[in-house]
Design a binder for these strands. Structure first.
Length: 398
DNA sequence: AAATCGGGGGC
DNA sequence: GCCCCAGATTT
């Protein structure tokens, strides 16, 4: 472990103002504001670009969204890749593009179908935004994907990164990107001593991402940055001996590659106890569609709520009351079917799944009876799907 | 500036 | 268990 004093002793620490024109190599500043000739930093950048692109020519992965530069494909892939790993996205991307090959197909789709294909990817707001944006592109841009980043960022789900990614990757525009891989890579390159995800670091790294861009080949350059971050400049045990730009890297030159970037503060989890209830009547069960503003908006779910009370009797009472509140129906809770533990952002949830028998009452809006087999057509949350599969099994056994 | 939104995979 | 992931949006 390197002491904080060592990190702060880096030349970089003195330059914490957002000045991306100071790219460090070792302890020397290559782009000093005062006396360095423009040629030096120009050479540094040229060398960096050339080595990066040469490396990428050898190591570029064959990813499904790289088969063309169709902005629609790039867009869908970038949205799916937000906070989601490449390997996870691959099969979703293939299915999605098969179902909706063009922006017009997507715009014409039912939202439930879009969500069904998104099921399991998480952050379902992305799917709703993608669908809404597709409609907007058809309505306002004649089905043609907009080419400038400002217009792109007016579309739901497209922020600074995604706009820069589409503009550069699909249209080869000189627009910077900054995301998980390149935050890590650039933070090491600059030997940035603080948490690079905080606002000061973000300002600096965005400026750096812009500064190092070539004037041509931006599409490949930005992808190469991410690829290098993903394959070589990894979070732990970076493969610096394989890195084409280790000679440009402040962290490596100072032996700090295992210490940087500095980790973000850990967020604390809150334990929550929830229940989901399978209310049965005549071989059907109750599901409800989550409304706007709720978690999982647009998805369907079993009656589900937080459990406040302790002890089986009190819990049963609470189940009855909250099922009625949510569905309008009175039901008698039965067996505990299963318990699942899962995480939703900052919550650690213990989910108890109960069976219950319909007693009386009529369903509220956005709530319906359904045969378990038909649940296959509805978008559910991951835990909802697991529970649904369990029900179908027990039905087919009986 | 900080909180919120999910879920899977790696170690 | 904990860390991490081709971030965006709201407060």
């Amino acid at each position: 472990m390197i002491a904080e004093a060592d990190l702060n002793s880096l030349r970089f620490a003195e330059q914490n103002s957002a000045d991306a024109s100071r790219l460090t190599k070792g302890t020397r500043t290559l782009m000093a504001t005062d006396c360095t000739s423009p040629e030096v930093d120009s050479k540094w950048k040229q060398s960096f670009r050339r080595r990066l692109l040469a490396w990428y020519a050898k190591h570029e992965r064959d990813l499904p969204w790289r088969k063309s530069q169709d902005p629609y494909r790039v867009w869908v892939s970038e949205v799916m890749l937000q906070q989601t790993q490449v390997e996870t996205v691959k099969p979703y991307f293939q299915r999605f593009l098969k179902a909706f090959p063009t922006v017009k197909n997507l715009a014409a789709a039912e939202e439930s179908q879009v969500l069904r294909l998104w099921e399991g990817l998480g952050y379902y707001r992305r799917a709703r935004g993608l669908h809404a944006a597709a409609k907007q592109i058809v309505a306002e841009h004649g089905g043609q994907f907009p080419q400038d980043v400002v217009t792109m960022q007016s579309l739901p789900g497209i922020g600074r990164y995604t706009a820069g990614a589409i503009a550069s990757i699909a249209f080869n525009q000189r627009e910077p990107i900054l995301e998980a891989n390149t935050i890590r890579l650039l933070a090491r390159l600059l030997a940035y001593p603080d948490d690079p995800t905080k606002s000061a670091g973000q300002r600096l790294l965005w400026a750096t991402a812009e500064e190092i861009l070539p004037s041509t080949n931006v599409s490949r350059f930005n992808q190469a940055l991410m690829e290098l971050g993903s394959l070589v400049c990894t979070p732990t045990q970076p493969k610096c001996e394989e890195c084409p730009v280790s000679r440009h890297c402040g962290a490596y030159q100072n032996g700090l590659q295992d210490e940087l970037p500095r980790a973000a503060a850990k967020l604390k989890f809150t334990d929550v106890h929830e229940a989901a209830v399978v209310v049965r009547k005549n071989g059907q069960v109750i599901v409800r569609q989550c409304g706007t503003g709720e978690r999982w908006a647009g998805l369907w779910d079993f009656p589900r709520f937080a459990i406040e009370s302790e002890g089986p009797l009190f819990v049963e009472e609470e189940l009855i009351k909250k099922v009625c509140q949510q569905t309008g129906v009175t039901a008698k809770p039965g067996a505990l079917l299963t318990t699942m533990k899962h995480g939703v952002t900052r919550y650690r949830i213990t989910l108890d799944c109960y069976s219950a028998q319909f007693v009386s009452g009529r369903l509220k809006r956005h709530t319906r009876w359904i045969r378990p087999a038909e649940l296959a057509d509805l978008p559910l949350s991951t835990t909802g799907r697991k529970l649904a599969n369990r029900i179908e099994k027990s039905v087919s056994k009986n």
